[in-house]
Structures are given as structure tokens and as C-alpha cells.
Simulated assay, not measured.
Amino acid sequence: MKKILIPTDFSACAKSAEKYAMYLAKKMDAELVFLHIINTPIDWSKLTKEQENFFPETQSAIAEAKANLKELIKDAEELGISARKILVYNDGNKKIHKFVEDEHIDMIVMGSHGTYGFREHMLGSNTYGVLRRSSVPVVVIKENNKKMNLNTLVFATNFKEETGESFKAVEKMAESLGVKLKVLFVNTPTYFMETNDILSIGKEFLKEFGTYNHEIHIIDAFKEERGIIQFAEKIKADGVAVITFGKSDLMQYFSPSITENLIAMADFPVFSILKTKK
């Protein structure tokens, strides 16, 4: 992984993501790309300098954004990290995916307050929108994140064959980050299985899709999210990786994903990998 995208609005929440992204970039020797989107009242690229003067508030917002981006690049370069900026006028969330493709991005790091409300959940915030559609791993950082090391990463899985290709992506990501993967199966009352059956299915899954030898960890919990958090806290993990199943914003409202629930419930970094196909 050689290029990390950080969409930012310069908020306290975004600053946590920026700081964590710098840590990851240093760890992986990757380049940082800071992206800021300004919603302008008119197509700014078509205005002359004189016409821009009719929108002083927008001018001020653009000047402030440029200054903030310049400061971020300075902070990164002082740490020995290569960095650059992208400032986009009058666009929205879907544009982020265009930059992922055009810029050959390998990972996205975003901040999130991790709270739900009817409006935010129904419409989808920038972070949740990216989670559901991103073709590359997305790392979500909470504003109060205290995990600034990444040595152990819990990977929660159900060992279903349809997630096999995504597991390969998780292993590849872990290799790039130089972290230890702890493979976890959460045994819930709804989908209860006996331990020997879990181990048997898990071993077959890892044999087919895994590259490295992984110990299979099992925890019993009422809900997948609770089990993941409890296990991560027990072993003092530095983050959690999960496979996210892309859904429309409407479907997510009626059936929130485990990934989104984890973001809402946990304080540690959450690494999301969209389920992929062969």
C-alpha cells in the first residue's frame, strides 16, 4: 500500500483521522493525499476573478481551506512523509470514489463521530457512504481515538466462502501494515454452532483462502459487535478489521451493518474491507 487518501473537513474528528493516517503512512512508507471538498453556490471553476468577488464568504472558505491543507502537508513533511493536496469545488461524496480510481489510492482514512440519528443514518454521512462503496480498505477513526500503535488487528469472520476473496485482501493489508492478525469467530445464539464445527469450517476456509497459519479464536456473545469488542479489549488489540457488505442507504437504515454498529459502539480504529468477488 503506497497511497493513502484522507478526506477532511478540518474538524476535531477529522484531525484524529489525519493524525492516524500520518502514523500509517510512516509505518508503510506511503504517500498521503489530503482531499477537501467545498460546496460552492455556483460552479466556481467557471468564474472569473472579478466574479469571485461577488461571493466573499466562499472566497474566505477557500482561502482558509488552502491554508489548512498547506499546514497538513507541512506537518506530514516534517515527519518525513510525502504528501499533497486536492481541493475540489462544488461536489459531493460520490466524487471520493473517482479520486480513489484516478489517484490509484490503496487506503482511505476517515474520521467519524460514530453516532446515529434518523437523518444521518437515512441519508448516509460521508464516512458511511464511502464504507458501503469503497473498493479499497477504509479505516474509520473516532474523535477520541487513543490507539496510535498498530501491532495487533482482530479480524472478525463467519468463514463463509463468499468472503474468501475479501479475506485475501485482509491478509494483504495486514502484511503491508506489518501487523498480527487475530482471526475471530463470534458464536451467537441466533447462529449457534458447536466449537468443533466452527474449528472444522474455519480450518477449511483458511486452507482455501489463507496464506499464513492463523489460530482460530472463538467467543460467545449475544451480538457479533459485542463479541468483537469484548475480544479486542481482552487481548488489548489495536484495531478491528471486518468485511462490509455494500447496501443502499435505505437498506442500511433498516439493517445497519456490523461495521457501522462497531463504529458507533467502539473507540478503537475500524478497518473496513468491502466484500469482493473473484
Rank of each mutant, 00 (worst) to 15 (best):
Ile141Lys: 08
Arg132Ala: 10
Gly114Arg: 02
Tyr116Thr: 12
Ile141Phe: 13
Leu131Trp: 04
His113Cys: 12
Asn144Tyr: 11
Ser134Asp: 03
Thr127Glu: 02
Glu143Asp: 11
Arg132Trp: 06
Ser135Met: 08
Arg119Asn: 10
His121Gly: 08
Ser135Gln: 11
Tyr128Trp: 09
Arg119Lys: 14
Met122Pro: 06
Gly129Leu: 07
Gly117Ile: 05
Gly129His: 04
Gly124Met: 03
Arg119Tyr: 14
Pro137Thr: 04
Gly129Gln: 11
Glu143Trp: 08
Leu123Trp: 12
Thr127Phe: 07
His113Ala: 13
Gly124Pro: 10
Leu123Asp: 08
Gly117Asn: 13
Tyr116Trp: 06
His121Trp: 13
Thr115Met: 12
Val139Glu: 09
Tyr116Gln: 07
His121Pro: 09
Glu143Met: 14
Val138Gln: 03
Leu131Tyr: 02
Val136Asn: 00
Gly117Glu: 12
Met122Phe: 15
Val138Trp: 04
Asn144Asp: 13
Gly124Arg: 05
Glu143Gln: 14
Leu131Ala: 01
Ile141Tyr: 07
Glu143Leu: 15
Met122Cys: 06
Arg132Thr: 07
Val130Arg: 00
Gly114Leu: 01
Ser125Asp: 15
Thr115Gln: 11
Pro137Asn: 03
Gly124Asn: 05
Gly124Leu: 13
Lys146Met: 12
Gly117Thr: 08
Gly117Gln: 03
Asn144Arg: 04
Leu123Glu: 10
Lys142Ile: 05
Ser135His: 05
Ser134Lys: 00
Leu123Phe: 14
Lys142Phe: 13
Leu131Pro: 00
Gly117Pro: 07
His113Glu: 12
Asn145Asp: 04
Tyr128Ser: 14
Gly129Val: 01
His121Leu: 14
Met122Trp: 15
Ile141Glu: 14
Val130Leu: 01
Val136Arg: 01
Ser125Asn: 13
Asn145Cys: 13
Glu120Val: 11
Ile141Leu: 05
